[in-house]
Simulated scan of single mutants.
Amino acid sequence: MHPHRVEVSRVVPVPANVAFAWVADPRTHPRFIPLTHLSPEPTAPLGPGDTFTMVSGPGIRRGLPGFPDRMTITAEQRPSTRAGTIGRSAVRKEGPYLRGVAGFDVVPVDLDRTRIVWWEEAYLAGPWPRRANEVLVGLILRGMMHASLYRLSRLLQRRR
């Protein structure tokens, strides 16, 4: 059985190396992913093999509890506009609620524009049928991913 993949993309008005720096570093994610907080926030950049936890929920920024999403970075390959190579940052989701894999592909369009492709193959941990819950999780993820990439694009436009 193939995993259910959800994928959303957006062209952002920055070079590929800048886009990659934003999506590959979990410390920047709370700035563009709604209702999300990195806990605890690491002081140094993370790389392959490092584990981190994102906590999501409507009151997370006011100190209310949320849903933890533990992840381990499994891949980090920088893009190159000159060489025409795609960058990739990937994680393995380790629960306790979500399991699977996710990541960002960073595709250079030209010197000043980049397509960010956010993909997830995630499902709820637990006893329920995986295929059915992958589709439900995918619907929720797709909306959140669209909103997040929109916010990231606006943030990057203001930084130019």
Rank of each mutant, 00 (worst) to 15 (best):
P26H: 02
L149W: 02
T81A: 10
W128A: 14
P40N: 06
M145I: 15
S153Y: 01
R62N: 12
G66F: 05
V18T: 15
P108Y: 03
P108K: 11
P127K: 09
H37A: 13
S89C: 11
V109D: 04
E41H: 09
L136S: 10
T81N: 12
N133H: 15
L46V: 05
V18S: 08
I86L: 02
G66D: 03
T114W: 01
Q157Y: 06
R5Q: 09
D69W: 05
R61H: 13
F32P: 04
R115E: 15
G47H: 01
R70H: 14
T72L: 07
G66M: 06
W119R: 11
A19W: 06
D110C: 04
E7C: 06
H146E: 01
L139D: 01
G66N: 05
D105P: 08
A44T: 15
V18Q: 07
L156D: 00
R5F: 00
R5K: 11
P108H: 14
N133I: 07
S89F: 10
G66Q: 12
F52H: 12
D50A: 13
G47W: 02
A132D: 03
V12Q: 01
R31P: 00
V137C: 09
F52Y: 15
Q157D: 13
V8K: 01
T43P: 00
M145E: 08
L152S: 04
V11S: 03
T51S: 09
S153F: 04
V8R: 07
P45G: 00
H146W: 06
V106Y: 01
R99S: 04
H29R: 08
A19I: 13
T43G: 13
A147K: 14
D112Y: 11
P13T: 06
G57P: 00
G143P: 05
R82T: 13
L124G: 06
P65W: 03
L124Q: 05
P26C: 09
R92V: 15
